[in-house]
Design a protein around this nucleic acid. Structure first.
Length: 206
DNA sequence: CTCCCGATAT
DNA sequence: ATATCAGGAG
């Protein structure tokens, strides 16, 4: 399954725009329940104005809310960004920590966001990113029957080799966006059509 | 469990 | 009109 996905999506990586761990952390917090296209549209100018954790910590709450408004949940996200940045300044010397324990202790940072930062910014396969796409595709493929993200992550970590955890996350997310879509899955064009228990509409003759 | 939130696809 | 989008906190 993994080799076939790698062949289908050879350049699978995050589609969020970022150039350092702080930018990726901010972009990932903003990405909750929002497309990465919309996040990138906001961060394009946001990252020019806010370059350090100190910049976010000292940001005017109202201004920050307006700047991230298109990403939705803007009041909660602005509060998370400011709280997260204050924690970075006060407890981590203004730098983004590189351990799961320290990351999930930050306001607005859950295990999913922490896995994104660890896997992409620090190159550590600490876990599998379980977002809405990974959950849906994993359920459809029969990789797990769980609905709780942490239980899904455990099931996936037992099936996927550790060195593939981060790549696997990207593959499933990309596959979920391109083919295994929530509303109208494109099963006829799915490379996993023949081994998917949920394949509808069409079974490829292999 | 609910709430937060706007834009797009269907 | 409604479901969905790189979720997390209370």
């Amino acid at each position: 399954m993994i080799p076939r996905l790698k062949a289908e999506y050879p350049d699978a990586k995050t589609e969020l725009d970022w150039t350092n761990p702080l930018e990726l952390l901010v972009a990932t917090i903003l990405s909750a329940q929002t497309t990465d296209v919309r996040v990138n549209g906001v961060t394009k100018t946001l990252f020019q104005r806010y370059r350090t954790a100190h910049d976010y910590a000292e940001a005017d709450p109202g201004e920050l809310e307006e700047e991230i408004r298109p990403t939705g949940f803007y009041r909660n996200k602005a509060r998370s960004l400011r709280g997260m940045a204050r924690a970075l300044v006060e407890e981590h010397g203004g730098e983004v920590p590189s351990t799961m324990q320290e990351l999930v202790a930050l306001p607005g940072v859950g295990r999913k966001t922490a896995n994104v930062v660890l896997g992409n910014a620090f190159g550590v396969d600490e876990g599998v990113v379980v977002d809405t796409h990974v959950r849906r595709v994993s359920n459809r493929l029969g990789l797990t029957a769980e609905q709780d993200p942490e239980k899904i992550e455990q099931d996936l970590m037992n099936v996927v080799p550790r060195e593939d955890w981060t790549v696997f996350s990207h593959l499933l997310i990309l596959h979920g966006r391109r083919i295994c879509k929530a509303r109208k899955p494109d099963c006829p064009n799915c490379p996993l059509n023949d081994i998917c228990p949920s394949a509808r509409y069409y079974k490829a003759p292999r």
